Amino acid sequence: MRAIAIDGPAGAGKSTIARKTAQELGFIYVDTGALYRTIGYAVNHFGLSTKKAGEVVSALDRIHVELKFIDGEQRVFLNGEDVSDLIRSPEVSMFASEVSAIPKVREFLFDLQQDLANHHDVIMDGRDIGTVVLPNADLKIFLTATAEDRAKRRYQQFLESGTVVDFDRLLEEIKQRDYNDSHREIAPLRQAEDALLIDTTGNTLEESIDLLQKIIRNRLGLE
């Protein structure tokens, strides 16, 4: 089995770029951020606070998360319900950042992530894939872009989906998420020493996908 680990800050395009690249190469795409979003969504849905570790941990025995691949697309299920679309709001993004700092949550999801990598060729993205989850990955990539560029992309995505958001607030949320992810005690966001840095600032989505595919094919000797 071959594993590609892609880390980077929120809004860097990891999910979209990794998903399309996985489809092209015939790998399974694993969006670990969706797992943390699901935990955050569930805790809030239960009426508990994602800021209180005790409340989050107490909710874990009521949470069953599954990843299913339907027509080649990853869908996330919470207690049997497909929540793939419900977990994509800016609010849930912040919930994900808060619960991901809790060690018990990371332990809760760790085995699921490793099991997927042990049984499939995977492209897995997140915040600590190359440093913690898949330290022996065949290729590690740290994908990034400026906060302003990432905010513009997210803003456009929301507009295209018919959701009205304030750009300045979105930018501040991304900066706060960056701070939270890079300063948490457990598995902080950082570039693995052996990871390749790719900055997509100014790139179109197609340019970023093309660049990543070329690098992966070259590094892994794929035709």
Rank of each mutant, 00 (worst) to 15 (best):
A10P: 07
R75F: 12
E107H: 09
L170V: 03
G11V: 00
M124N: 02
D178L: 02
D199A: 04
L189R: 04
L67A: 07
V30E: 05
D85S: 07
R169Q: 10
L134K: 00
D61F: 04
L220Q: 11
E193G: 11
K140G: 01
V57D: 07
V164G: 07
V30M: 08
L222S: 05
A12C: 09
K152P: 03
L116G: 01
E55D: 09
L189C: 03
N218I: 11
T32F: 01
L170D: 00
L48V: 09
L112P: 04
D199H: 05
P188Y: 04
V99M: 10
F108P: 09
L170N: 03
L205P: 06
Y155W: 04
V164P: 07
T200L: 02
F46D: 12
L109H: 14
I6Q: 04
D61M: 03
R75S: 12
G8R: 01
T21I: 13
V92N: 01
V164F: 07
R177M: 06
M94S: 14
L67C: 07
E107A: 09
A53P: 15
A22N: 10
V132H: 07
R219K: 15
L67T: 10
E185T: 12
L196K: 08
V92E: 06
H183S: 06
G8A: 02
G72F: 05
M1G: 14
Y41W: 05
T32C: 01
F69D: 07
F46G: 12
L86A: 14
S161G: 13
T32D: 01
I102F: 12
N218T: 14
L109Y: 14
F110M: 03
D82R: 10
R127P: 04
R19A: 15
T32S: 05
S89I: 14
K68G: 06
M94D: 12
N79Q: 03
F69M: 05
Q23N: 13
Q113I: 00
E91N: 10
V43M: 14
E73G: 11
L86K: 15
R106T: 09
P103L: 14
K152I: 02
D115F: 08
L212D: 00
H183M: 03
E206G: 12
D85M: 05
E24I: 13
